[in-house]
Simulated assay, not measured.
Amino acid sequence: MRILLVEDDTSLGETILAWLRLDGHAVDWVRRGDSAQTALLAHHYDCVLLDRGLPGLSGDAVLGALRAAGNTVPVILITAFNALADRVEGLDLGADDYLVKPFELEELSARIRAAVRRGASQASNALTHAGIALDAESRQASLHGRQVALTSREYHVLHALLLRRNGIVTRAQIEESLYGWGEEVESNAIEVYIHNLRKKFGSDSIVTVRGLGYRLRDDA
């Protein structure tokens, strides 16, 4: 999944960034509240980790504007404010969860998974097309009911294709679902993932649209 990390503490930010990338996530890291607003307008995120005390614009202001705009992306506040009143205030602003510093990285990962599951439960978890099914909560894939094992990157590529199953997905859109800012994209990485998915779901399961990108085969 793609995560926006909004944290002005360099040491903590670097630690969280490294941990989440090891966990298979694409992560964008900004250090200011106004930069977070810009990122949220420009990109789709599956989860936001938001510090409350930020330069430029407070985390509370970022969260308030996000919810006022109707954006329901899961938001976890990560903050040193640990009084009961602080936690209640953060949740009332629209946060999905509240994690007090310092915290264990394993707990952060669990909180992210829980927040994303809750968000997914408000919509249909299953994406289906031409016999392919993908459950966004369990991250299980199947072909005509038979389970298919996917790597983390293969899952994200298939997820991007299924989200736009009636249209074309560009290479840039696939890369955005896989890589955070500053991560090096290997020149043939997307082709490798597409090749692997074709081996698992059929050589005709993904169609190359020359000069444009990829699409799933027609759902006959």
Rank of each mutant, 00 (worst) to 15 (best):
R113Y: 03
G145H: 10
N125D: 02
R146I: 06
L63M: 09
A85H: 11
L84W: 09
Y155E: 00
T128Q: 09
A126R: 14
D86A: 07
D135F: 00
L93Y: 10
G56M: 09
F81L: 15
G180W: 12
H156R: 15
E175R: 13
I174Q: 11
R153C: 11
R87C: 06
D135N: 15
A136F: 00
L178M: 01
V88G: 10
A68I: 07
G64D: 11
Y179W: 00
D60R: 12
E137P: 05
S109F: 04
E137K: 14
H129N: 01
G167W: 04
A149L: 15
E176I: 00
F81E: 10
A110P: 06
V169C: 07
G56F: 01
L93I: 07
L105T: 11
V148A: 09
A69T: 02
R111S: 13
L54N: 01
A80D: 04
H156D: 15
L161D: 06
I112R: 07
N71W: 07
E104K: 03
T128P: 04
R153F: 13
A115Q: 04
Y155M: 04
P55S: 14
G119N: 06
L150V: 11
D97E: 09
A95G: 08
Y179V: 12
A68P: 03
A120L: 01
R164D: 14
E137Q: 15
A172R: 13
E89S: 12
Y155C: 03
A160L: 08
R164C: 11
F81M: 13
Q122T: 04
A95I: 08
R171H: 14
L93R: 03
S121D: 14
F103H: 04
G94I: 02
A136R: 15
I78D: 02
A149E: 15
I168N: 03
R111T: 03
I174C: 00
A65T: 01
I78S: 05
A69L: 06
D96S: 05
L178N: 04
